[in-house]
Design a protein around this nucleic acid. Structure first.
Lengths: 150, 150
DNA sequence: CATGCTGAGTTCACTTGACGAACCGACCAC
DNA sequence: GTGGTCGGTTCGTCAAGTGAACTCAGCATG
């Protein structure tokens, strides 16, 4: 049972959840991926309390996942909008993984709310587990965890 | 800005988070993937309050992600252990996605806490976005979301 | 039999976090 | 100045997480 001897204290799952695991954070990011940038839009679409939204956006900016960019509409004063950074864009697989599980287990009679297509060829997009030798893995059972680094 | 017109009310990301988005749930599953099955082990390794752990395990069982299996050690009374179901195993990509992001952005000087290897060939395993036509996508930017079903 | 031990909880007092409605301040248009 | 909008902040209430103490079943020991 060597798996039980792996070091959990620095686990990346726990670390990532400490950054984006609070309520609303991942939903804010979902909206950011769908093109939402402004406070009022996040608020209207998500329905999260304003105070929570303020806090989550500030946190995501502090973590370098979103950045606050000034903009100015015609006849409007200057405001700020929130855009994904590279670090934020790299959370995309996490959202896709959550979405695919929900599509499989929560959608009624295969009626999936949203589909992802390859922008170039239009084919449906999925997450797959692959190894660097090029094999496609079917399941978690094909994976062996080993303690890294030290 | 057609992205803003997609239906969010049935979003699978939100749905999945409603099931496994509470504090500790995904960490419980991480341990389950590492082979932990018993209440006392979850408690000792995670350090979560017992009441929360009881609640999360019950919830995951109710959702069909874990199942409660009776077992009996020599000279011990019968107890129950928690094992992943197929539905639970299918959450593996979500955990891998969180882990890979943490490895990239939280690990100090590339010192990754844990590595995943292909059980057959030993090569490191990663999540990749691929389309059904066989292309590998580099980024979220290569994806176009379209409203599904209806 | 009485006692103690262990695993798997439950109870409880306390602190933290989320909620929703109201309020605020800058800026623009009229 | 009056009104409107955006992006907040404040506040009272309510839900959730925390940690320590307590419970209970069943096995083992003397």
């Amino acid at each position: 049972m060597s798996e039980l001897l792996l070091d959990r204290s620095r686990c990346s799952v726990a670390g990532t959840l400490a950054v984006v695991g609070e309520k609303w954070s991942l939903l804010v990011l979902r909206e950011a991926f769908l093109g939402v940038r402004r406070f009022a839009d996040f608020h209207r679409i998500l329905g999260a309390p304003r105070a929570v939204l303020t806090d989550r956006l500030a946190r995501l900016v502090a973590e370098g996942i979103l950045r606050r960019v000034p903009y100015q509409d015609d006849g409007e004063r200057q405001r700020h909008e929130y855009r994904l950074t590279r670090k934020g864009v790299d959370l995309y697989p996490t959202l896709v993984a959550l979405m695919e599980w929900g599509d499989r287990y929560l959608a009624e009679d295969g009626d999936v709310p949203m589909e992802l297509r390859h922008r170039d060829c239009g084919a449906p997009v999925h997450l797959t587990l692959t190894c660097e030798a090029g094999h496609t893995l079917d399941s978690a059972r094909d994976v062996r965890p080993v303690s890294g680094g030290s």
